[in-house]
């Protein structure tokens, strides 16, 4: 079932041309002086951003390379993601098994999904104190609701015939959940992962920008710092790092998951 080469090549070419065009446009705006005499400061050229990119890692801020900040952020992100995804599975699973729990949980998901994590900060600080755990909490908050919503919708959309085929071969309760509901809802779970990951990543950075713990500084704090100090080239370079991490996760983790499940099984929606 190999696709024709042109079908995989064409999107790649489109993306490359698009990015190249954007870069050319950027460089043109940066070099043209369109933005006035201080444009180098607010709209640095690609070379300046490139140099700042390297400087971010070599020099960094406050004696720490950007690696340290990335490491801190990734650690908190990973903890939050694992916890959030895990809890989403547990709670969504429980709502298949118990109808009362399902009613409550659906209600909770609908409400909590609407609350912006950053707005919860004051409450979270009162409950948890000022610890990196607060950031983890916000990542969990960012990921658990969209993930749960997708899993719950996925469970609802499981064709009745799979459930009956499963019950017919002796599955019930927890084993029906793991044997039928979860795999049958994979396409929903994968899109939940995509949405959850993007929200968690953005949520982490905005939380770190607002709530910076100097003993555990992350990428958001770094960006904020660069902004405060008018180091715009460094700030843009850090945004590029954020994009790179996002792309690596998308193509290095999420796409392979998708290719090895729903695409392989012919279950794409």
């Amino acid at each position: 079932m190999k696709k024709k080469k042109s079908e995989t090549l064409y999107p790649l070419i489109v993306k490359i041309v698009f990015v190249a065009a954007l870069l050319v446009l950027w460089e043109y705006v940066a070099k043209s002086g369109l933005l006035g005499e201080h444009s180098a400061l607010i709209f640095p050229s690609l070379e300046t951003i490139g140099a700042a990119f390297i400087r971010n890692f070599k020099v960094g801020f406050a004696g720490s390379s950007l690696w340290i900040y990335i490491g801190n952020s990734m650690k908190l992100l990973l903890e939050g993601l694992l916890l959030g995804i895990g809890l989403a599975f547990v709670f969504s699973g429980l709502s298949i098994i118990s109808r009362t729990f399902s009613i409550i949980y659906n209600f909770v998901v609908s409400i909590c999904d609407l609350l912006p994590g950053v707005a919860l900060l004051p409450v979270v600080i009162i409950i948890f104190g000022v610890k990196p755990g607060v950031i983890v909490f916000l990542v969990v908050h960012a990921v658990i609701w969209p993930m749960s919503r997708n899993i719950l919708d996925g469970f609802l959309a499981v064709p009745q015939i799979y459930v009956e085929a499963g019950r017919n071969i002796g599955l019930k309760g927890f084993r029906l959940l793991t044997g039928v509901y979860l795999p049958a809802a994979t396409s929903y779970i994968v899109s939940g992962l995509k949405v959850g990951w993007a929200r968690a990543w953005r949520g982490l950075i905005s939380a770190e920008m607002i709530f910076g713990i100097a003993s555990c500084p992350g990428i958001g704090l770094y960006i904020n710092q660069m902004r405060t100090n008018m180091n715009n080239a460094e700030m843009y370079a850090t945004l590029i790092v954020i994009v790179i991490i996002g792309v690596v996760v998308q193509y290095g983790i999420l796409s392979p998951i998708e290719n090895n499940t729903v695409k392989k099984w012919g279950m794409t929606r």
Partner: peptide, 15 residues
């Protein structure tokens, strides 16, 4: 420096 937690004034007061 390592003891600092960045928070807006009202959040800091609550904390």
């Amino acid at each position: 420096d390592a003891n600092i937690v960045a928070m807006k004034h009202p959040d800091g007061m609550t904390a």
